[in-house]
Deep mutational scan, measured.
Amino acid sequence: TFEVERIVRKKIVHGNTSYLVKWKNYSSKDNTWETEDDIRTKYGDLVDDFEK
């Protein structure tokens, strides 16, 4: 199971928000862009903290 360590960046393309996710126990080269809906479902607190 993958676990988010932190959110690195945010991008908005054509009105759709995605977050660059750093995965726990993986290197930064393994970071992936994930949709806001996918990340918010399980890691809403991390998204809220990133947006502060």
Rank of each mutant, 00 (worst) to 15 (best):
S18R: 11
R40Q: 04
D38A: 14
Y19F: 07
R6S: 12
V47S: 02
E51N: 09
V47L: 14
H14L: 11
K11L: 07
Y43D: 04
L46T: 04
W23P: 00
K52T: 09
T17V: 14
E51W: 04
E3D: 08
T32R: 03
E3T: 07
W33L: 01
T32L: 02
T41M: 13
D38M: 13
I7H: 00
N31L: 14
E5V: 05
N25Y: 10
E5L: 07
T17P: 05
N31G: 05
Y26R: 15
V8P: 04
S27Y: 06
D30N: 14
T41C: 11
I7N: 00
E36K: 04
Y26C: 15
K29N: 11
T41I: 13
N16C: 14
V13E: 12
Y26E: 07
F50T: 01
N31K: 05
V47N: 01
Y43W: 15
T35A: 12
D38K: 12
S18V: 15
Y26G: 11
R9K: 12
D48C: 06
I12N: 06
I12P: 01
T41E: 13
S28K: 08
V13T: 10
Y26N: 10
D30G: 11
Y19I: 03
G44A: 14
S28G: 09
D45M: 10
F2K: 15
S28P: 09
F50L: 02
D30M: 15
Y43H: 07
E5I: 06
K29P: 05
R9A: 15
R40W: 04
K22G: 02
V13F: 08
E51C: 05
T1N: 13
T32H: 02
Y19V: 01
V4Q: 03
D49E: 15
N16M: 15
T35S: 13
Y19S: 00
K52S: 10
K22C: 04
E51K: 06
R6M: 14
Y26W: 10
N25G: 15
D38S: 13
T35W: 12
D37G: 09
N16F: 12
I7S: 00
V13R: 10
W23M: 01
V47Q: 03
T41G: 11
K24N: 04
V47E: 02
V4N: 00
Y19K: 00
G15I: 03
V4A: 13
R40V: 08
V8E: 06
K10W: 04
S28Y: 13
E5Q: 05
D38L: 12
I39V: 10
T17Y: 04
K29T: 11
D48Q: 08
K10N: 07
G44M: 10
V21R: 02
L20W: 09
F50R: 02
E36D: 05
T32S: 10
E34M: 15
V21F: 01
K11S: 06
I7C: 15
V13S: 09
V21W: 01
Y43A: 11
E3R: 05
T41L: 14
R9F: 08
Y26L: 15
F50S: 03
T17Q: 03
V13Q: 09
T1Q: 13
E34Y: 10
Y43G: 04
I39K: 01
V4P: 13
Y43C: 05
E34K: 06
K11F: 05
T41P: 11
L20T: 02
E51H: 05
D38C: 15
K42I: 09
N16K: 15
K52C: 08
R40C: 06
T32P: 01
K22H: 05
K22P: 00
I39D: 01
Y26F: 14
F2Q: 13
S27I: 08
R6F: 14
W23N: 00
E5R: 02
H14G: 13
D38Q: 10
E3M: 08
D49R: 10
L20S: 00
T1F: 14
I39Y: 01
G44R: 12
D37F: 12
G44N: 13
K29S: 11
D45A: 13
R40T: 05
F50M: 03
D37Y: 13
E36N: 03
L20G: 01
I39S: 03
E36C: 05
V47G: 01
K10R: 08
K42T: 09
K11N: 04
D38V: 12
K42E: 08
R9S: 13
I39N: 03
D38E: 13
K29V: 10
G15N: 06
K52N: 10
V21T: 02
L20A: 00
N31V: 09
I12A: 05
D45L: 11
K22R: 05
T41S: 13
T1P: 13
N25H: 11
V4F: 05
K10D: 01
G15W: 03
D37S: 12
T41N: 11
T17C: 05
T32G: 02
R40G: 04
D49A: 14
D37L: 12
R9I: 06
N31M: 15
W23K: 01
G15M: 03
E3G: 07
V13K: 07
Y43N: 07
K29M: 12
F2W: 14
K24Y: 07
V8H: 02
D49F: 11
D48H: 08
V4I: 14
S27P: 14
F2P: 14
N16V: 15
R40M: 09
N16S: 12
D45H: 14
K42W: 11
L20H: 02
V8K: 03
D38G: 06
D45C: 08
E3I: 11
D49G: 07
D37W: 12
D37E: 14
W33S: 02
G15K: 05
E5C: 08
R40A: 06
T41H: 11
